[in-house]
Simulated scan of single mutants.
Amino acid sequence: MKGIPINVKLREGKKKGYNRRLRAKGIVPGILYGADKPPTLIEVDERELNAILRAQAAREHFLVSFTLDSKETSYAFVKEIQHDPIKGRPIHIDLESVSLTRPIVAEVPIEFVGTPEGVKKGGVLSVNLRELAVRGLIEEIPDAIQVDISKLDLGDTLHIKDVKVEKIKVLNEPDEVVASIFVPRLVEEKLAAPTETAKEAPETEAQEKPETKESKGKAKEE
């Protein structure tokens, strides 16, 4: 899991007046904590943060990467961003540090691959999950989990237990539905039509069977 690059700097002051002056300059104050490290006062550029938030609009918590007081890359989850209730601008950010040597829990997007057979036949793909909860080392957790749905036919359902992953553990319930192929009524009626026609065929054939000489002779004898 790579994380979204963001520039994070150490923050010198912590009083309200100092933070207010930072915000006036387009800088968002914040705090970095976790991973058995003492809390650290930080600051990030407001424009850069807003650009990241727009790109991650559908996700509340996501991973970022940065360098702070060393050349080593650090990782952290965005845990909370406070916004101005009137202007909507971000006014504070909380980052939770991630350990590189301990398993973490993360939400990973699902990337569906292929066109389901059922969709080709007129079915509709119904997606129940777009992210999976997983546990593993940060370096082993992928940025997205690819799920092949090309073999899903009409009426088929894909469960968590059908999703194959390596080196990490999926925390969702095994029977939880990931996606399914819904069969519209019109398609269902078309599939049922040949069966009904086949049942009616013998009767129609008997009614339309032409008379033979033998059958005419029997009719005269009667």
Rank of each mutant, 00 (worst) to 15 (best):
R11H: 01
I181V: 15
E188Q: 14
I104F: 01
A57V: 10
E117M: 06
R47Q: 13
A193Y: 12
A51L: 14
L137C: 04
H159Q: 14
G34H: 03
V165S: 11
V113Y: 00
D36A: 08
V8L: 10
E131V: 12
L137M: 05
P202L: 04
Q146S: 13
S150K: 04
V147K: 04
L95K: 09
E139G: 00
E214W: 03
A76F: 11
K2D: 15
F62W: 11
S99A: 09
K169H: 10
L129H: 00
P142A: 05
K213E: 14
I42V: 09
L63N: 02
S150D: 05
V163R: 04
P5Y: 09
I141P: 01
L129I: 03
T73R: 07
T212I: 11
S215H: 07
P142Q: 06
I160D: 10
G114A: 05
N7L: 11
E208G: 04
I93G: 08
P90Q: 06
T212R: 08
I145K: 01
E72A: 15
L154G: 06
F112Y: 12
K209S: 13
E43L: 03
T73D: 11
E222K: 15
A58Q: 14
L49K: 00
N128R: 05
H159N: 13
R47G: 11
I42F: 05
G123V: 04
L22Y: 01
V147T: 08
K218F: 04
R11W: 07
P202T: 01
Y33R: 04
L49Q: 07
E140R: 00
I91T: 13
G34P: 06
L154K: 00
N7F: 07
K216F: 15
P109I: 07
L22T: 01
N50R: 02
